[in-house]
Nucleic acid binder design. Structure first.
Length: 255
DNA sequence: AAGTCGGACAACCGCACATTT
DNA sequence: CAAATGTGCGGTTGTCCGACT
């Protein structure tokens, strides 16, 4: 890990490097990552610097274990958004996409293959969280990856007006979102729901929990109005929490 | 005590999209 | 308008460390 390619350091960061990176960002702010190594006097590539800051050094990052509420929200958002770690992380204050991704793969990725225990299967288990069949069953509203991953080829894309904020979170243009939602012959999320239902039946893991999953998705989309749906993509995590909280209460009462 | 296993997480990598030149 | 460059993202790998045998 300590080797170098083209003279640039790789591997674990030292305390001294962290300090240089912090000082540089304090002085110049985030962004301009390409100039950062030179400014900071770091023998690292710009990507490495950016990653170190966004995943580890940024003051807003929350360390430590995931709380039960965070896990609950993570599970639900993953069901809605799939492996869209950055979006999920945006709903979990202080958590990075890397944190979320790592947590998911270690805690839930393996649960799909509980029979596998040997180390040789571990990599497979990790990958299984993003297996093609799994991808089919999730909702992927972001246009930029929609084209690549969705089976809904030919359907109109949804314009969310995604905007990256300075703090790393993502917000959306509400007007674009609303217009796009209601545009076309059928609403995109209805199609996604249909696809999700079909995919759940075709998926490699047919367990009783899928019924619960289907119930969740069905209930979610049948009980949310557009404003509520919007809030799921809005930056105000309190609103998201409120929607999910109300949703949970509704379901608890029904069950 | 030594070896093995597996969880946790930092870091690397390649790709795609966005922006700049 | 095309090429170059910058940025962000998701998947994967490597390493550390505690638990277990």
């Amino acid at each position: 890990m300590e080797g170098s390619s083209e003279g640039l350091r790789k591997g674990a960061w030292t305390a001294e490097e962290d300090s240089l990176l912090r000082q540089c960002i304090d002085k110049y702010g985030e962004g301009k990552w390409n100039k950062l190594p030179l400014r900071a006097g770091l023998n690292r590539c710009s990507k490495s610097c950016r990653e170190r800051w966004l995943n580890y050094l940024k003051p807003s990052i929350k360390r430590g274990k995931f709380g039960s509420d965070e896990v609950d929200l993570l599970l639900r958002l993953h069901k809605l958004l799939g492996n869209r770690w950055s979006l999920i992380a945006g709903r979990l204050p202080g958590r990075t996409a890397n944190d979320v991704k790592n947590y998911w793969t270690t805690h839930f990725g393996k649960k799909q293959e509980p029979c596998c225990t040997s180390k040789t299967r571990k990599r497979y288990i990790t990958c299984s969280a993003a297996s093609p069949a799994q991808k089919l069953s999730v909702i992927k509203p972001r246009p930029q990856s929609y084209n690549r991953c969705s089976q809904l080829i030919g359907q109109k894309e949804v314009e969310l007006g995604e905007v990256s904020n300075k703090d790393g979170s993502i917000t959306y243009n509400k007007d674009k979102f609303m217009n796009s939602l209601m545009d076309g012959e059928s609403m995109w999320w209805e199609s996604l729901l249909e696809e999700s239902q079909v995919a759940d039946g075709m998926g490699p893991v047919a367990t009783t929990t899928n019924e619960a999953d289907n119930f969740f998705i069905n209930s979610m989309f049948s009980t949310l109005d557009v404003e509520q749906l919007w809030s799921l993509f809005n930056s105000d995590t309190r609103e998201v929490d409120k929607v999910l909280y109300e949703f949970n209460n509704d379901n608890d009462q029904r069950i």
